[in-house]
Design a protein around this nucleic acid. Structure first.
Lengths: 334, 334
DNA sequence: CTGAAAGCGCTTACAG
DNA sequence: CTGAAAGCGCTTACAG
């Protein structure tokens, strides 16, 4: 099919392209009633819809943002994206999704591609490895919001969990239930993925705050795919912890795989709390106590901040860090 | 910042815009070595990157596709999207995500917006309510692929599960384990959401095929949020089923919530199979027998079909239905 | 109240 | 081997 353009409409309605354009942009100020009607009719008859690409070229705005997550398969990312999409949809923005897989090359490529595509802004779960690139975006005043991770030294709006508080909530719940020997299991600590560090720091502080001494043997890390053996090591110590905090949903999953295999009873043999809510928390036996991230609120906030920067160029509030409070879902595993 | 354009590069390199454009498009055929180098240098020095929007306007291709799912929060959708994104990324395509929420108005709006944005094609989980709109896309030879649901009468590439086979696999597993009184629990049957119908049909056929008589009391439906009461009704019959097939992951979740609350033992009191793999299947006690959709393969296939239609305009193979085989994950709940 | 003209940043036949 | 010119489909200041 041949696409209908504004010229076709103009011809059909017997007016000029300018007038049609005015109509499309609802600048009716000085437009004659009959002109308006004629254009309206022509649009209907021809089934015209404007080419946004052409408009974008002229207006230098695409009404599109890019969202770069680590991996859309992570539940948290999915929820954040859904919230972003909902917010954007209301404002007639579209969102392009990219999975950077914590790979700096992929992230770089995506950022550059998105810029070439003239997106109006980007929300990213930054890998933390492309500092120079981030800085160049910031220098260019390109609208940018970081999510989940904080990159020290960069002046960017950043939305994240109060990770220390998450650990505090967990430790305090353990203490409330009478546990004193509390362990922590984490994926490997990579320099730039700050939530893990913050949660571990929070864990230590929370112990201290509750007059418990931190025991280095109770803090172990490992790649997800071999973390079951780490659980084993943890529990086969002479004086094993009676409670474990799982640093995220994937660690929790592996611990549960382990406890099932070795029929470790929860919470009698081992009390458990996981950071991140999981879909099966309340149907599991026992129901799992979790620390939930307010993923939707966080996604919404990120979208809001970004669209503010995009639509209000005079938006002079300097970039800030927005910490969200986690929520304790107290159930039966602790 | 002022954006660098092709003119700036041309001026800087002392050549014409055309030549720079040739260079960008790797048409080096007749280009002098020194010209090439000069342009390369100019691009480096100025930090130029082409404006894809301008290119798109001219070339009538945006290297972007739209993906309209029912809801990105559904695990199946997430997996499909991830597969699509991976495939597209390899081919330098981008994907815009839309959540239609099974709402025909939202779906219509998204389709029209995506078209205005000149996406090169659309992959959709069709609501089934916008038949005319779909037909107009097809008539216009607009690249389109449907996923998960089949719309009778439309000539579109459609990728979906062999839903009848999914039910067959479940029934046969039940029979193998000695169960004869088999029930089925489903969300409400809405006309256009075909998987549910097909699974129910498959269920009936599978019973027949195994010389079991279909008992209408063993087939119940209900909205997800009140399906626990339906489970109750089902099990409080005089002669309740000993086994239940959950039509999808959400039904399964509710059944498990019910069995936990009333301490129904699985599989002793009630055997269970769910269609859709769930993240907690193997860590649940008992581990859950599921029928898994090959979500990644399906997403990849959809992307492949769409990009074929987009890039190869002479692609004359007529639209087809691609049915994917489910996979039985035989575990302990049956 | 409406139209002619220029321009957004590219690409692409075509001329030389 | 390279450049001038036209054009993609819009918007917008400006003239009348």
């Amino acid at each position: 099919m041949k696409r209908i353009t504004i010229s076709d409409v103009a011809k059909h309605a017997g007016v000029s392209k300018s007038t049609v354009s005015q109509y499309l942009n609802k600048r009716y100020d000085y437009m004659g009633e009959k002109t308006k009607e004629r254009i309206e009719l022509a649009i209907k008859e021809l089934g015209y819809s404007p080419n946004i690409i052409a408009r974008s070229l002229k207006q230098k705005s695409t009404m599109t943002i890019g969202v770069i997550v680590a991996n859309i398969l992570h539940v948290f990312s999915t929820q954040v994206i859904r919230a972003i999409e909902d917010f954007c949809n209301e404002k007639d923005f579209h969102v392009i999704i990219c999975n950077a897989d914590d790979d700096l090359k992929k992230e770089k490529r995506y950022i550059e591609m998105l810029q070439s595509k003239q997106v109006d802004g980007i929300i990213a779960f930054p890998t933390g490895d492309n500092i120079e690139l981030y800085q160049s975006l910031i220098d260019a005043k390109f609208p940018l919001v970081f999510l989940d991770r904080i990159i020290p030294g960069l002046e960017v709006d950043t939305v994240l969990l109060d990770n220390e508080m998450a650990s505090f909530f967990a430790v305090e719940e353990f203490v409330r239930k009478g546990y004193k020997n509390i362990g922590l299991l984490s994926p490997p600590i990579r320099g730039k993925v700050t939530p893990r560090l913050e949660r571990i720091n929070g864990f230590k502080k929370a112990l201290e705050h509750n007059q418990l001494t931190f025991n280095a043997d109770y803090l172990m890390t490992g790649e997800i795919r071999r973390i079951q053996t780490v659980v084993k090591d943890m529990l086969e110590q002479d004086n094993p912890p009676e409670a474990i905090l799982a640093l995220n949903d994937r660690v929790l999953h592996e611990i549960l795989a382990f406890t099932k295999k070795y029929t470790v009873r929860i919470p009698d043999d081992l009390a458990l709390i996981g950071i991140d809510e999981v879909s099966y928390a309340s149907i599991y036996s026992p129901a799992l106590t979790t620390i939930q991230q307010p993923a939707f609120e966080m996604g919404k906030k990120a979208a809001e901040l970004l669209l503010n920067r995009i639509t209000d160029k005079s938006y002079r509030i300097s970039p800030d860090i927005y910490r969200f409070e986690p929520k304790l879902n107290s159930r039966e595993s602790c």
